[in-house]
């Protein structure tokens, strides 16, 4: 669905992203991992088409991102940025409704309303809809913003969802709920890429992970293939161990390195 080839982003003489190639196919949920400053958010912004990279190219369905008409792209893929401040006093529902903007004139009022209601429900955000955005907590704001992104791709076949740290402000149950939701979007024929920090939930929920270190892709594959104790120690500076969870699932637990 989306293919990035040899992406290079250069700022002030430094390569923030240094020759990264990634493929994200239909039905996939990819976790983009790496320490602070590894270039995860920058790569996500290139994939979102916010600015052209200094090198390489991004394609969606085989067509260069630059050739995609803005409006078509906006109906196909939604982006959840990291910190979202909203201007003016506006309530949660109005924000989620803005996600329907690209569909104006193409979907009916009823379809829009349905997409907004579904998105609010999926993010457990319906009770927040009538409250002013500024008065919500950080995690509640994040759920409203995620609902906005979901509303944007509501009803779209093969949607693409790009999430920049979607769980950073969420409590534990909502963290798992949001990642399960991302899995669902992927399972229904979409593709999801999420920048994540928590290796435990990434290893538990993502089908595939990609690890960035100083702008370079250093590991890629299923969580168990990619997140070996050696790599985690070298890249993240922590020790780790795969543990068995009830229900036959496995996840990566991390702890401080032995001195």
């Amino acid at each position: 669905m989306i293919r990035a080839t040899d992406i290079v982003v250069r700022r002030a003489g430094r390569n923030l992203v240094d020759g990264v190639s990634l493929v994200l196919g239909e039905g996939e949920f990819l976790g983009l991992l790496g320490p602070n400053g590894a270039g995860k958010s920058t790569l996500l912004r290139v994939l979102a088409g916010e600015f052209p990279p200094e090198g390489g190219k991004v394609e969606i369905d085989g067509a260069d991102l630059k050739a995609w008409p803005r409006a078509d792209l906006a109906r196909r893929r939604a982006v959840l940025p990291q910190h979202a401040a909203v201007a003016f006093d506006i309530d949660g529902r109005a924000i989620v409704e803005l996600g329907r903007l690209p569909h104006e004139g193409r979907s009916t009022r009823a379809q829009d309303a349905q997409a907004v209601a579904d998105a609010l429900d999926a993010c457990d955000a319906a009770p927040l809809a009538s409250r002013g955005y500024a008065a919500l907590s950080g995690g509640e704001q994040q759920r409203i913003q995620l609902a906005r992104a979901l509303a944007q791709i509501g009803g779209t076949p093969k949607p693409l969802l790009l999430l920049d740290e979607p769980t950073s402000s969420l409590d534990l149950s909502h963290q798992h709920a949001v990642l399960s939701l991302a899995k669902r979007v992927a399972a229904q024929g979409g593709a999801v890429l999420a920048v994540l920090h928590d290796l435990f939930s990434a290893s538990l929920h993502c089908r595939r992970v990609a690890v960035l270190e100083r702008g370079r892709l250093v590991a890629q594959g299923t969580p168990e293939e990619a997140l070996t104790p050696d790599l985690v120690r070298r890249v993240f500076g922590v020790d780790s161990r795969w543990i068995d969870l009830p229900g036959g699932q496995r996840a990566l637990a991390t702890y401080p390195m032995a001195a």
Partner: peptide, 20 residues
């Protein structure tokens, strides 16, 4: 008006919604 509505979310976000 439509573009200004999208801008309430931020410039990047308005871009993601297809606003030039």
């Amino acid at each position: 008006a439509r573009g200004l509505d999208a801008l309430m979310l931020g410039e990047r976000e308005a871009g993601h919604l297809g606003i030039p």
